[in-house]
Simulated scan of single mutants.
Amino acid sequence: MSASKPPNLSKLVLLILTRYALLLGFIIQSLRLLIAECGHNPVRYFAILSMQRSGSGWFETLLNSHNNVSSNGEIFSVLDRRKNISSIIQTLDRVYNLDWFTSASKNECSAAIGFKWMLNQGLLENHKDIVEYFNRRGVSAIFLFRRNPLRRMVSVLANSYDRYAKLLNGTHKSHVHSPAEADALSRYKPVINSTSLIHDLQETENSAAKALEYFNTTRHIVVFYEDLITNQTTLKQVQEFLNIPVKDLSSRQEELENCIAYF
């Protein structure tokens, strides 16, 4: 048998380069179209303003299940980031100045970027400068509260106890992910100080009222945790508020209302 001729390497290399050039041209053209399209869909900034044990963690996981949303946790839980208004503004700039189109926006044109911010993390004390910043940068506020402050108080006490008791196999979890975990945590029955109960509940309601008053000039929406559980249109309203496509959202966290004894 006669030996087959070796392939012409120069032609093979030329063919490969030609195909890569066509592919590269297609990618560049697609990027140009994407950039042109995204230019009409700017990144939208938001902040979830809430209180501890009000369902903000679960709410944030719902938002993050949307491929147009990136909510980045409780960034002001770190004290140095909120020690004064200068550090607060610097932290806000770090979040909102990032190139979200190539990172947390998940490569979608329409993106909503934000984080959680608790009312007791420098928000109320520095509200004037923060409101000015929100209005200047176009940051929308999503207020998330609970209609039943007593249940929130029970949740705060139970969570504080579990931080030291570590009821789930020696670990502390602020949020539950299964009915079994909820059942384990619900075995603890916190004791409420009846003497200060009314005062404590009023303080919670006063903080929420102050926040709404201070931020009434911002673009904002008020959401109640109980409505997220019982009203299917509430999440739709939040997505419309953020100007993102309305989609079905889900979370791996167990809904708090499924754990009434604990929360």
Rank of each mutant, 00 (worst) to 15 (best):
S2E: 13
S4K: 10
P6Y: 02
L12D: 05
L12A: 11
I16Q: 04
T18F: 10
A21F: 07
L22C: 07
L22P: 04
L31R: 01
R32K: 08
L33Q: 04
L33G: 09
C38W: 03
Y45N: 08
S50T: 15
Q52E: 03
R53I: 11
T61S: 15
S70C: 14
S71A: 12
S71K: 05
G73N: 02
I75F: 02
F76N: 04
F76Y: 03
D80I: 15
R82A: 14
K83R: 14
N84C: 15
I85P: 10
I88L: 07
I88W: 00
L92C: 09
D93R: 07
R94G: 01
V95F: 01
D99Q: 11
T102I: 15
S103W: 04
A104V: 10
E108I: 03
C109K: 00
A111K: 04
A112Q: 02
F115D: 01
N120E: 14
G122R: 01
L123R: 02
E125L: 06
E132K: 05
R136V: 13
V139Y: 01
L144V: 09
R146L: 15
R147I: 12
L150V: 11
R151A: 13
M153R: 07
R163M: 15
K166N: 15
H172G: 07
S174L: 10
V176E: 03
A180F: 00
E181F: 15
L185G: 05
L185D: 00
R187I: 12
K189N: 11
P190E: 07
L197D: 05
E203R: 13
T204V: 12
N206S: 14
A208H: 06
A208Y: 04
A208Q: 05
A211K: 03
Y214N: 11
T217Y: 00
D227Q: 07
I229L: 10
T233S: 09
L235I: 11
K236Y: 06
V246C: 05
V246K: 02
E254T: 11
E254K: 03
L256A: 08
L256I: 13
A261H: 02
